[in-house]
Simulated assay, not measured.
Amino acid sequence: MAGIAQNGTGALRDLNGKVAWITGAGTGIGQAGAVCLARAGMDVVISGRRRDKLVETEALIRAVGKEPVIEELDVADADQVADVAARIEKRFSQLDVAVFSAGINVKNRSWGEVETDGWDSVVDIDLNGAFYCCRSVLPMMRRQKEGLIINVASWAGVRVSKLTGPAYTAAKHGMVAMSESLNMEEAINGIRACALCPGEVATPILDNRPVKVTDEEKAVMLQGEDLGETILFLAQLDKRVCVNQLVISPTANRMYTTPGIS
């Protein structure tokens, strides 16, 4: 049948021997993505601010038969980001997939509560940090003439919500736009970017919500492993395929089912 691979394997590519760098890898989506990519055979570099959390991810990756490289990193520090990217190139001489998942939000987030320090911390990590990371890997990917960047944005990056507050909403909207600008300029170099925009995910960032999220509510949200498998799917797509933006939500989407939450 036309369009179906004759070898029976479909169009998904083999990731064995390829290299991925994941930020925000100590918890949540970043951790799940790192484990899924390692399970698929990738060599993974895991970054985050807290070494104890990275060690937990390291153990999960070892359990699937790979040995990760830990690179502690504050993505809000442009020099640190550049140094990590340089070490990745020196060690592996390639970078096939970059998953930029580092992100925070503040508890006091509404217009009536947010402080300038809170705004700055969210924008510095969620938007500026993503920019520093993207910028740091472009020279390597241009030389390779290929590379996939997955920017973990948010439902809040495509729909304005009171729930997430103005700083997070603005940062994630910026991240989505930044990702598409990469596709506009870097497609000629074989580089593709995806803005991954999940709705509510049961990860530790929920602990910083102004209103406590119950265990029952968490149970029907997206789970970290759902996003890990989504990241793996994106990484396995042939290099001719660019998923510019992927919006994914729980079936029981509270933005639809709970009046006033959005």
Results as ranks from 00 to 15, higher is better:
3 G>M: 15
5 A>M: 15
8 G>W: 10
10 G>Q: 14
11 A>H: 14
27 T>C: 02
28 G>D: 02
31 Q>Y: 01
32 A>F: 04
32 A>D: 10
33 G>E: 06
34 A>Q: 08
36 C>K: 11
36 C>G: 01
38 A>D: 09
38 A>G: 02
39 R>C: 03
43 D>W: 05
49 R>S: 02
51 R>S: 11
51 R>W: 07
53 K>R: 15
53 K>Y: 07
57 T>P: 13
57 T>F: 03
65 G>T: 04
67 E>N: 10
74 D>S: 08
74 D>L: 14
75 V>P: 05
79 D>I: 14
82 A>W: 03
84 V>Y: 01
85 A>M: 11
86 A>Q: 05
88 I>W: 08
101 S>P: 01
101 S>C: 11
101 S>N: 09
108 N>D: 08
110 S>N: 07
114 V>N: 10
118 G>I: 00
126 D>Q: 10
129 G>M: 10
137 V>D: 02
138 L>Y: 02
140 M>E: 02
141 M>F: 00
145 K>G: 04
148 L>M: 12
148 L>C: 08
152 V>G: 03
153 A>I: 01
155 W>F: 15
156 A>Y: 07
157 G>R: 04
157 G>M: 06
159 R>K: 15
161 S>D: 09
166 P>N: 05
168 Y>A: 00
169 T>S: 09
170 A>T: 14
186 E>N: 13
186 E>C: 10
186 E>F: 06
189 N>L: 00
196 L>G: 07
196 L>V: 02
205 I>P: 02
207 D>M: 11
207 D>K: 14
209 R>D: 11
212 K>A: 15
212 K>S: 15
216 E>H: 14
218 K>M: 05
220 V>Y: 12
220 V>Q: 12
221 M>V: 01
223 Q>W: 11
225 E>T: 03
235 A>G: 04
242 C>T: 13
242 C>Y: 01
245 Q>I: 05
246 L>C: 14
255 M>G: 11
257 T>Y: 14
259 P>C: 10
260 G>C: 05
260 G>W: 12
